[in-house]
Design a protein around this nucleic acid. Sequence first.
DNA 1: TTGTAGGCGTTATCAG
DNA 2: CTGATAACGCCTACAA
Lengths: 350, 350
Amino acid sequence: MRVSIGDVARRAGVSISTVSRVINRRELVNAETRQRVDQAIAELGYRPNMFARGLMLRKSDMLGLALPDVHGEFYSEVIRGANAKARELGYHLVISSTNGPEDAQTLLEDLLRRSIVDGMAIMVSEQPGGRPWEQIETRLPLVLLDGAVEDGEHDSVVIDQRAGAQALMRHLIRRCGMKRILFMGGLTTNVDTMARRQVYEEVMRAADLPVSPEDVYHLDFQYETAYAFARDRVKGWAGSRHCVFAANDEMACAVIDAATEARVRVPQDLAVVGFDDTRIARMTRPPLTTVRVPMSTMGATAIELLCKRLADPDQPPTHVSLTPQLMVRESCGAAQQAGAKPAPGDTHVA
Amino acid sequence: MRVSIGDVARRAGVSISTVSRVINRRELVNAETRQRVDQAIAELGYRPNMFARGLMLRKSDMLGLALPDVHGEFYSEVIRGANAKARELGYHLVISSTNGPEDAQTLLEDLLRRSIVDGMAIMVSEQPGGRPWEQIETRLPLVLLDGAVEDGEHDSVVIDQRAGAQALMRHLIRRCGMKRILFMGGLTTNVDTMARRQVYEEVMRAADLPVSPEDVYHLDFQYETAYAFARDRVKGWAGSRHCVFAANDEMACAVIDAATEARVRVPQDLAVVGFDDTRIARMTRPPLTTVRVPMSTMGATAIELLCKRLADPDQPPTHVSLTPQLMVRESCGAAQQAGAKPAPGDTHVA
DNA sequence: TTGTAGGCGTTATCAG
DNA sequence: CTGATAACGCCTACAA
C-alpha cells in the first residue's frame, strides 16, 4: 500500500542512496541506472514522504501568510498576489486570518507552533493588537506587511499612505479648488485610517483650510453604515467646492448614493473621493476618484522578500515602500489628467 | 541554538519519552515530574519539530484548498468560510489557485507531491479542465467543490444552481409577469453559467415564453465588458415587462448603469437581476434582486467534510447541496416579499 | 510512573 | 558511479 524509497530501490535493484540521488541530483547517476529507477518509481507510484524529507532538509517550501481578516477585496487581492508569486518561486502558501481583533496573538502562536512553514508574512492593521510578532521568540524569517509598522529589524513592505493621501488632498485643493473637505475614516484603531487622517489635517492646515472637528467622522468602512450616516447629512455637506474624503471606496460609494438620492449632485454640489481603487470605484456614477493601492503587489513583494531572506538569512533587512497612485476620475469634478503620477505599483526601496 | 526534545529531557533530568508524554498525554505522567518538564520546555523555548512529529503521526493538521482563481469576492468568501472552520477544528489551510484555465492539473499535482496536507478540497469551475483530480492516483482524502461535478466517489459540496435559478426565473415570470427575459452569462466553459442558462431555457419554455437565440449572450463576468456591451443595446432591450438575467451581480450592475445612462429606467423600462448576492448587490440603484449563494458556507462545509473523513476514512461519501436564496430587492420591479424562501445557508444532505 | 530501544523515510557523508 | 551507515527529532511498545 504505502511505498517508500526502499521499495523503489529493491525493485530497481539498486541501493536507497541511488534512488535518492535520482530524485535530487539526477546528473550524478548513470543514465541507464537512472532510467531503471525512474521506471520503478513510476510503476510503484512512489512519492517521497515530505515529512522525512523535511526532517533532513529542514524546510517545507511553505510560507505562512497571516492576515487581519480575509474580508473583502483588499485581502483577496493581497492573497492573489502572494499566491501567484509563491507558486512562481516554488512555494506553497499557508493562509490564515484573525477571527477578531484580539485573535492576532493566538493565530500567530498557533501558526508558529503547529504548522510547518519556512517563513511568514504578517499583516496587522489594528492598533490594539500591538506587535504580536515580537512576543514570538523564534528565529523564523518574518516580513511585516503594511499596518504592521516597520520595526527596523524585520523585512517589511508598506504602502506609503502619506504619499497617497497627500496626492489626493493636493489634487482636491490645488486642482479642484476645494474649500471644505470632510474626512470619513474607518475605526480610529485602524492604522491606515489614522495615517490618512493625519495627512488630511496636515494638508488642510497647510492650505489654510479649516479642520473642523465636526467634519471628521469615524465609521467602520462598511457601505451600509456609511450610507445610513450620510443620508441624514449629505444636504448639510453639500455646497460649492465641498468634498467628502472617504477612507475607502465602499464608504465613498455610499456617500455618492446618499447624495444622489437626496438630489445632491456629485460632483457639482458635493465632490466625493475614496481610497483603495477596488473594483467598485469604476462602478459608481460618476466613477470614483480614488487612490490605487497596489494590493496584489504588496502580497507578491512580501513573498519575494521572504524568499530572498530564506536564500540569504543574514542580509540586512529590506524595507519596501509601495507608492499608491492617484486615480482621477469624475467624482471629484476634475477629470483632467493629474500631473506626474507614478506608475502603478511603483516602488521605492529604502 | 536549536533545541530538541533531548535537550529538554536532559534539563529536566528525565528521559526523552517522559518529555514526549508530557507533550502528548500529560495525564500519564506524575504531577511534579510534569512540572519540571514544563518548566524546562519554557526555559528552553522548546517547540516540537513538526517534521519529526509528522513522520510518526503521519499527519500535518494542514488541509489544502485549491481554487480556480482567487479573483473577486466569491473566492474570497469561500476562503473566509474555510479558514474559519479550519481554525475552529484545529487545522491550517494551504491555499492555492490556478493561474490559468489549463493550470488546474499542474496545481493539483504540485500541491499533492510537494506539499504536506492531510486532505484537500478542490474547486474546478471551468469545463475544459476535465477532472484533474482523477488523474491523481492517491489515497488522499478529497472533497469536490461546486463546479467540480460530483463524481459519486468523493465527498462533495455543491450549490444547487438549478434551485436558485428556478426560484429567480419563476419569480420573474410569475410574480413580476415578465414576458421577455434576456440571459447574460459568463463564458460557455463555466459550469455555473451553463447550469443557470439551462434552467433559464427550461423555465422560459415551460412558461411558453420565447427563447430567442439573440437574447442569450455570453460575456466574461466582468463589469467593463458587460457595460460596453450593454451600452450599445439597452435601448433595444427595453420594453414593458422586459428583463435581463445576468449570471453574476457585476454584470447586472453594468446593465443597470448602462440603462440608467441611456435613460432606460430600471425596473420600469427594463428589469435587471443578478446572481451571487455579492456586496455590490446592495450598492446598485435600484438595489439588485439576485440569488444569494452561500459562499462562505461552502468553504466551511468543505472543510467540515474533510475533517469528518479524516476522522473516519471509510464512511460512505457525503454529498452536501447548498440551496441558494432568492433575494428580492427592487431591480426586478417587485419588491414585495417572495413566498417561502429557504433560510440562508439552508442545506440539503443527500 | 519512568526509561530503553526500535523505527518512521530521507538525505548526507564517506568509502569503495 | 554506487552503496553502507549515520544522523534528523520524535513517538510508542515494552520492560523495569
